[in-house]
Nucleic acid binder design. Structure first.
Length: 654
DNA sequence: ATACGATTTTTTTTT
DNA sequence: AAAATCGTAT
């Protein structure tokens, strides 16, 4: 038996042991939110709820996994599985069973954003839209518009007029593209990320029997990071909880940082209106940070109008005041960070207790170089995601055509790797292939080779050879691991890698790791579908959960929910955070301030805020930067004042 | 006509 | 660093 009263504080204890019904938990940063949630699940299990009757929606799959692992170690013996994961992965699993009720094949596949962009691109080509004559938005911008319209439930026209007013005159064309995009997805039998949510909601809304089955199955619904849900996700939750109303949502409106993808923190603000009988709990004791760090965080977030009033209380002993460092330029800034990290390391702090956070990936470039130069071990949690890298997508496209020979996007990627096959030649080949019942067999037939476009025959021949090798594998042997091995050692992919990339060897290692990772899945199509939803983790995270002693470099977004003893926030200049571009969005400044708040509250012991005075960008040239408004607005006092929430360090040249 | 290499631009955040 | 664009070679 777990001794709840001993292991939890009174605030947490009440949440954990509260009966069912709608519950809203406002959990400030560092208040033990995850702990509360895990103990609540444990408590439900101990009170006799069966695991399969619990649904736990989290913001990342990793968060769900680690929470469920913790539950498992709390409650020793339980069998069955709790359904946990992101809304996307939960929706995905639901749709696997019921997509046929919406007219989809139950073997639909998931396209990631790159694939989605491709489809939109081909829709644009098909509509003969001239992207040259009039300045037409690029396909990724169109994708953004369509996605935002769906996730915020606004008409495409309204999204364009509020966020992309300069393209308003093109909204008719854009609308056409969106329709054709939808059509194409249906024809290809694929869903994009948004479709997963939209279709799941539609299923629950339109099919009362399914809603009944599912809402009876999930007797208790728990939602983490509720402030980052969008309307679709909130609706899905409401629907699933519509019978029993055992719904607990946990979140912190001050940490809502995903409005760019449709998250609406009003979901959490208006929760009490949607559930007038809900009970509201507040977790306001911060165990993480020193009072000095918390003071700075509180001062900053108080500049936001739109929020629940809250007062985070620090319980830790006094520590060091946060430090502001102004460096002449980005190089000096990374110099300082690296220098300080070395000093801390020499004084015995492990690297993994330190993190460098920034607003945008490209802010971290100089720091990366400096760390390499000084041999500081580090791990980057931003930039191109592991599963989205070209070589990963290359080898999985072989797997995709084996699983589904009608997968146009996979064929496209695969064929275009071969010499003399570009966009046009692919279209020619595909226009013949797609009419076939068995495209794979057709492509490897002798006769097809002869009728292929002359210049491409060599390429098609090579491709055919490789595919024949793959097909020679017995079906039980056709695992990702074996396929990767074969492509590298017998096929031509290793040569291709070496010809195309300077870091071919590192990419080869990635592929081996991918093979290991894939071994977790029983079926290859499961693996391929999950892949699209897993794109977010760095390889170490996802593939091998090894904890290494490395400094973490991360965007603030990816740092959500994590903590380190020593945190460096670089680029604390106006224009970098708040990012100039983000300020143009409605509500942009407040969202950026929340982002800053999230960054600051990651720190346990020491917080360093640095910014470069001079910055160079190709578009604007050399620019003088000011300290972030989030710093200047909380320090009206003179620099010498002892009551400033931070102290300022000067850098000296060596 | 097409592929492909060189050059230029362009960077938010992510399921 | 990657994508988009441009110019050249085939």
């Amino acid at each position: 038996m777990i001794e709840y009263a001993k292991e939890l504080n009174p605030e947490q204890y009440r949440v954990v042991t509260e009966e069912g019904g709608p519950l809203l938990v406002l959990a400030g940063a560092g208040s033990g939110k995850t702990r509360t949630l895990t103990y609540r699940v444990a408590h439900l299990l101990e009170s006799g709820i069966r695991p399969e009757n619990i649904l736990l929606a989290t913001f990342t799959n990793k968060a769900a996994r680690s929470m469920l692992n913790r539950v498992e170690s709390l409650v020793q013996h339980y069998t069955g599985k709790i359904m946990g994961g992101t809304f996307h992965s939960i929706s995905h699993r639901i749709l696997r069973s019921y997509a046929f009720r919406l007219g989809y094949s139950s073997s639909f596949s998931i396209v990631d954003s790159e694939d989605a962009r491709q489809i939109i691109g081909s829709a644009m080509a098909e509509l003969k839209i001239d992207t040259k004559l009039t300045k037409f938005p690029k396909n990724n911008i169109i994708a953004e518009m369509i996605s935002l319209a769906l996730n915020t439930e606004t008409a495409l026209e309204d999204v364009i007029s509020s966020r992309y007013p300069f393209f308003l005159h093109l909204s008719a064309e854009i609308h056409q593209i969106a329709c054709l995009y939808d059509q194409k997805k249906k024809d290809l039998s694929v869903m994009d990320f948004d479709d997963l949510l939209a279709n799941c909601r539609r299923l629950l809304r339109e099919q009362p029997d399914i809603l009944q089955t599912l809402s009876r199955r999930f007797e208790h619904v728990l939602v983490d990071e509720y402030q980052d849900t969008n309307i679709l996700q909130a609706d899905i939750v409401d629907l699933l909880a519509s019978g029993h109303r055992n719904l607990m949502v946990v979140g912190d409106d001050s940490q809502s940082i995903y409005s760019f993808r449709g998250a609406n923190f009003e979901n959490i603000i208006h929760f009490p209106e949607r559930y007038p009988d809900c009970k509201i709990f507040k977790l306001e004791t911060n165990y993480r940070s020193t009072p000095e760090i918390l003071h700075l965080a509180n001062l900053s977030i108080n500049n936001n109008e739109n929020q629940f009033p809250k007062a985070l209380k620090a319980v830790r002993n006094k520590g060091m005041r946060p430090v502001i460092v102004s460096a002449q330029n980005v190089l000096k800034q990374s110099d300082f960070v690296a220098q300080r990290i070395s000093e801390l390391s020499r004084s015995g702090v492990p690297f993994c207790e330190m993190a460098v956070l920034y607003r945008a990936h490209y802010h971290s470039m100089e720091a990366q170089m400096e760390f390499v130069r000084r041999d500081i071990p580090f791990d980057i949690r931003s930039g191109i995601r592991f599963f989205e890298q070209a070589h990963i997508k290359d080898v999985t496209s072989y797997m995709r055509v084996l699983v589904n020979p009608h997968d146009e996007l996979a064929w496209r990627r695969l064929l275009m790797m071969y010499p003399k096959i570009g966009k046009i030649t692919f279209e020619k080949i595909w226009s013949r292939l797609k009419k076939q019942d068995h495209p794979l067999e057709t492509l490897i037939s002798e006769s097809f080779l002869q009728t292929a476009p002359k210049s491409a025959q060599n390429g098609v021949g090579q491709c055919r050879k490789t595919l024949l090798l793959l097909l020679a594998l017995d079906v039980p042997d056709r695992t990702p691991e074996k396929i990767i091995d074969l492509l590298l050692n017998k096929g031509d992919y290793r040569t291709y890698l070496q010809d195309s990339y300077s870091d071919a060897y590192a990419r080869e290692e990635d592929l081996i790791q991918l093979g290991n990772f894939a071994a977790r899945f029983e079926r290859m199509d499961d693996f391929l579908n999950e892949l699209a939803l897993l794109t977010n983790m760095s390889k170490e995270e996802e593939i091998e959960e090894r904890q290494e002693d490395k400094v973490i470099l991360s965007t603030i977004h990816q740092a959500k929910g994590l903590e380190w003893s020593y945190v460096f926030i670089i680029g604390c200049a106006d224009g970098m955070i708040p990012l100039e571009r983000a300020l143009r969005e409605p509500g942009g400044e407040e969202e950026e301030r929340r982002l800053f708040y999230v960054a600051v509250t990651r720190a346990k012991d020491q917080l360093y805020l640095s910014y470069p005075v001079l910055d160079y960008s190709r578009s604007a040239g050399v620019q003088t930067l000011c300290p972030s408004r989030f710093l200047s607005e909380i320090s009206p006092l003179s620099p010498q004042d002892e009551h400033r929430p931070f102290e300022q360090w000067a850098l000296f040249d060596d």
